[in-house]
C-alpha cells in the first residue's frame, strides 16, 4: 500500500520534470511521456514485487505453522515438523524463533487455542480438560500466553504452569479432570498464566507410538476442553 503511494508520487515528479535525455535529443521530444512512464512503471513493478514479497514472507513465517496440521477435536498436531519432511515454512519459523521441535521419535506436541465448541480460549473463563490422552510414556499439559509476564527471579513459590502425567490426581477409573481458571479451584487446578494475549494449551506426549502415524492419533482419544463459565 505504502509502496504504491510512494511510486505514484514519484511518477508525478518524473513526469513534471523535463527528462535530460529528451532535452538533448529533440527527436524523442515528440513522445517524452512514453519513456518516463515506462521507467516509472518498471520502478513500480520492482517496488511492488520487493515490498509485497518481503511483507508476505515475513507474515507467513511468524506465528503458527501454516501447513501440515492434523486437527483432533480442539487440538492440532504438526507431526511432520519433527522430521526431515518439515515444510520450508515450518523450517523458517523455527529458524526465526530458535525453536527446537520435538523429533518424531521423541514425542508429539498438540496445541489448542479453542474449546470443544470452537470458541477461543478466554483467560477470564473457567474450563475443564478431561478425558483420556493418547498412549504415551509420559505427557505434560501446560497453559501458555502469547506474551507471558516476566517472572521475577525471586518469585516463590513459582506459580504452576502445567501438569505432568505423574503428578496429576486421578479418579477411580484412571481418568483425570484439570480445572483451568483464574481463581482457585479444588482438584487439579491449573491457574491461567499471567500475561497478555491469547491463551493456548499445549499437550506434549513423550515417547509415544502415535507419533509414527497420524492415523493412530485419530483413533485415540484426546482430552476434551469444555467451557464452564466466565467471570464478568
Amino acid at each position: 500500500m505504502n509502496t504504491t503511494a510512494k511510486t505514484s508520487r514519484m511518477t508525478g515528479m518524473i513526469r513534471g520534470m523535463p527528462s535530460p535525455a529528451a532535452m538533448r535529443r529533440p527527436r524523442v521530444r515528440s513522445r517524452p511521456s512514453g519513456r518516463t512512464t515506462t521507467v516509472a512503471l518498471v520502478l513500480y513493478a520492482l517496488l511492488l514485487g520487493a515490498g509485497l514479497g518481503l511483507a508476505s514472507a515475513n507474515w507467513a513465517t511468524r506465528g503458527r505453522y501454516p501447513f501440515g496440521g492434523v486437527a483432533l477435536g480442539a487440538w492440532t498436531a504438526w507431526p511432520r515438523i519433527g522430521s526431515r519432511d518439515a515444510d520450508p515454512y515450518a523450517r523458517a519459523i523455527d529458524a526465526r524463533t530458535g525453536e527446537v521441535p520435538l523429533a518424531l521419535g521423541e514425542g508429539l506436541v498438540l496445541t489448542a487455542t479453542q474449546d470443544e465448541a470452537g470458541q477461543r480460549l478466554d483467560p477470564g473463563c473457567r474450563y475443564t480438560i478431561s478425558g483420556t490422552t493418547p498412549p504415551a510414556r509420559a505427557w505434560t499439559l501446560t497453559a501458555e500466553r502469547r506474551h507471558p509476564a516476566p517472572v521475577a527471579a525471586d518469585a516463590a513459590p513459582v506459580p504452576r504452569t502445567g501438569f505432568t502425567s505423574t503428578e496429576i490426581l486421578r479418579d477411580r477409573n484412571g481418568g483425570f479432570a484439570i480445572a483451568l481458571g483464574p481463581t482457585v479451584e479444588p482438584g487439579n487446578w491449573l491457574p491461567v498464566p499471567s500475561g497478555e494475549g491469547a491463551l493456548r494449551l499445549v499437550l506434549r506426549l513423550y515417547d509415544t507410538p502415535v507419533a509414527a502415524s497420524t492415523g493412530v492419533l485419530e483413533r485415540e482419544g484426546v482430552p476434551a476442553i469444555t467451557r464452564l463459565g466466565c467471570t464478568p
Binding site: 517496488l47 515490498g51 518481503l54
Partner: peptide, 10 residues
C-alpha cells in the same frame, strides 16, 4: 509482473 516478482521474492 510486480506480483510475479513478489511471488519469487517470497
Amino acid at each position: 509482473s510486480g506480483l510475479v516478482l513478489a511471488g519469487l521474492v517470497h
